[in-house]
Amino acid sequence: MLSALNLVSQNLNAYLILSGLLFSIGAFGFLARRNAISMLMSIELMLNAVNLAFVAFGAFVSSADPSHAAQASDIALIVMAAAAAEATVGLAIVIAIYRNRKTPLVDEYDAMKR
């Protein structure tokens, strides 16, 4: 009988590669999208990739010491909270500039002297 657990890869590198891919997709989205909200979402994606890395590391690296595994998920929760705070601040700023410029597209924010 195939246990559900066996479907989960036992290889740390697999998780790290997934995390790296997610991070890269987030970074690419940040570089490629011109809408401030989309960029914000990309950053969230990057942070989630980091969370995945944390949890994976927690599960594999310190299997000898179970307290560390718990720590990894704590970290993930903390990072989520920080990400939420960041999103809040970000949205506030986006709204402020939207009121001034009537556009969410960041490449049109270029009033500053070069």
Binding site: L16, F23, G26, A27, F30, A36, M39, L40, I43, M46, L47, A49, V50, A53, F54, A56, F57, G58, V61, A72, I75, V79, E86, V89, G90, I93, V94, A96, I97, N100, R101, V106, Y109, A111, M112
Partner: peptide
Amino acid sequence: FSTEGAIKYFLLGSFSSAIFLFGIAFMYG
């Protein structure tokens, strides 16, 4: 100007924070 400076600062700052955090994840791992 103020809001434009702020959004640039915010977007790039968050971007770099994510990079920084990824570094911490590696150190932890």
